[in-house]
């Protein structure tokens, strides 16, 4: 008896005819034009392009921080345009981890407390949260810095704390906006190595925007954007 092949898993990201236009007073500024894109679950993909090409806008649409003017944006099986602000907040908390260029850590909280923030939106107990935080900080190699606050950490260490915060709630999708843009080469390499671990070992879907060709090389696929058009 012949076995039926397993159906292919749905893509993590599916954009169809997505465009985005911002309004500046009475002037409409088109940023993205009819973007079609599919990113499979478990992929590591990078977006490159000159400033103003629409990279960050695309990333914001994929991560549910913004909504398309036209088109369909389905991410992790949900049509983001159909969700209101509250639903989007809950969806982001469950499915998306963020790594920002400037880390966006809270300076008055310790590394462990910063990492714990996304877990406060889950029903985990305090003890469970602590175990998750410890595991995330161990993964990024910062177990010796749990009690330090961001101003006491180097840029590279801060970005690794941000990565721990992004993965601590075990999201499907990790969004990284210029994650090495503010780091020296050595720290950037450490961050990119970590992304490799997340992609390869933890099977996370990574979507990264970068200006750095060296960083983009780590991705499985590199997309070029120019004037809002995906090349």
């Amino acid at each position: 008896m012949r076995e039926e092949p397993l159906p292919a898993p749905p893509p993590m990201v599916r954009l169809r005819g997505v465009s985005k236009t911002y309004r500046r007073g009475t002037v409409e500024v088109p940023v993205l034009a009819a973007v079609d894109l599919t990113i499979d679950a478990g992929a590591f993909e990078a977006f490159m392009g000159p400033s103003g090409s629409g990279k960050s806008t695309l990333l914001n649409l994929i991560s549910g921080l913004d909504q398309p003017t036209t088109g369909i944006a389905e991410v992790a099986g949900r049509d983001l345009a159909q969700m209101d602000d509250r639903e989007l907040s809950d969806w982001r908390a469950a499915h998306v981890g963020f790594v920002f260029q400037l880390y966006n850590l809270i300076p008055v909280l310790t590394a462990a407390e910063n990492v714990e923030l996304p877990l406060l939106l889950t029903p985990l107990t305090r003890g469970e949260r602590r175990r998750h935080v410890a595991a995330a900080l161990e993964l990024v190699g910062l177990t010796h810095r749990v009690g330090h606050r961001p101003p006491q950490l180097s840029g590279g260490e801060q970005q690794r704390v941000a990565i721990a915060r992004a993965i601590v709630s075990d999201p499907d999708l990790i969004i990284a906006d210029e994650p090495t843009g503010d780091l020296d080469r050595k720290a950037a390499e450490a961050v990119l190595d970590l992304f490799g671990v997340l992609h390869r070992d933890l099977k996370k879907t990574l979507v990264m925007v970068t200006h750095d060709p060296h960083a983009a090389e780590r991705a499985g696929r590199v997309h070029q954007l120019d004037k809002g058009v995906l090349q």
């Binding site: 921080l65 602000d85 963020f98 809270i106 923030l117 996304p118 939106l121």
Partner: peptide
Amino acid sequence: VAELGMLRAVGFRR
């Protein structure tokens, strides 16, 4: 502002 933006981004509601 940036801290509050981060909190909203990671899923804290308005």
